Simulated scan of single mutants.
Amino acid sequence: MQFITRAQWGARPSRYALTYIGSTRGVKIHYEGTYVPESLGRPDAHGQCAARVRSIQASHLANREEDYSDVAYNALVCPHGYVFEGRGAHRKTGANGTAALNVGHYAVCALLGSSGLTEPTDAQLAGLRDAVEWLRRDGDAGDEIKGHRDGHPTACPGGPLYAWVQRGAPRPGGGGGTGTPAQKYEPFPGADWFKRNPRSPIVTAMGRRLVAEGCSAYREGPGPQWTESDRQSYARWQRRLGYRGDDADGWPGRTSWDALKVPNV
């Protein structure tokens, strides 16, 4: 784990003493829910991440309506996979929505937005798993990994990240998740592949999965030729995952594709 302590990222002191908790049922995953520039995800942009974490803490400390004690999260994870210590282990979060929810689970926030940078990098997913495992080891977190929206009316942590949570929050490259091994499913063929109007058994297999998930917009089929019905059906699947606006345009992306679990053909 690439861990950055509060002192290392330049945290300000807490406004009040943070509440101790002995254990939780698990961890809830969050995102910023605002615009995050795509440039933050560049491999050479990690030098900007500590400043962004300081900005998040400053905005929380300035929020007198919520009256936060500190940055609301127990940890934050940047697109480069570094885990920034927030409130830390054995400290009640301020992010999950209610007092009861805040003692039930820790909160880990990905530096990811509702626009701009919306797709988590593999390094970020690995960092989120690192944060979860750290909170299990040092904070007595239970086995649950949920999204902020589980139990609270919010779009957080966004469609792409919530799809990963629903798949069991697997570590990229295998391990740490739940369910059937990923190699039994059709790998994502790439966004451009679908826009080339493909004719393939993969399209049929995808359509059958969409039908099984109750997302069919087909009048007949599905079949091997990519059609507008396929795109409309896939848009229904994206909306099921919580995607909105241009993120639910019916063109498959890697995260939503992995969540669909199209069997190998």
Rank of each mutant, 00 (worst) to 15 (best):
G168K: 14
R199H: 13
A107D: 10
R6A: 13
G190E: 02
T118H: 00
V262Y: 00
D192Q: 14
G214H: 11
I202V: 14
Y234W: 05
V262H: 00
W134T: 03
S200P: 03
G214E: 09
V165C: 02
G190F: 01
A50W: 04
G174D: 04
G250E: 05
P43N: 09
R87Q: 12
N197D: 14
R42F: 08
G223C: 02
H80S: 10
G177P: 02
Q166A: 11
P222C: 04
A141Q: 07
D67E: 15
W251R: 03
G47H: 13
A17F: 07
A123L: 14
S14A: 15
Q48L: 15
R137H: 12
G81V: 07
E32K: 05
L112Y: 06
P157W: 05
N74G: 01
V211W: 01
D230Y: 01
W164R: 07
R54S: 03
L40P: 11
R6H: 08
R171P: 08
A89C: 13
E220H: 13
Q124L: 08
Y16W: 11
A259G: 07
V132H: 02
M1S: 15
T204C: 04
S23V: 03
D130W: 01
F188Q: 02
D130F: 01
R231G: 09
V262C: 05
W251Q: 06
D246V: 13
A141M: 07
R219Y: 06
E65F: 04
Y243T: 10
Y185E: 10
D122A: 10
G242W: 00
S256M: 00
T121I: 08
L18T: 03
V211T: 09
H46W: 15
A235C: 10
G33S: 08
P201H: 05
T24G: 08
Y68K: 09
D140R: 12
L101F: 10
F194V: 03
G97R: 12
L76F: 07
D70H: 07
P157S: 04
D67T: 13
E213W: 01
E228D: 15
A75R: 05
L18E: 05
T93Q: 06
T255Y: 00
A141I: 10
P189N: 11
E186S: 13
Y68P: 12
H148D: 06
P201K: 11
Y35M: 01
F84S: 02
R231Y: 02
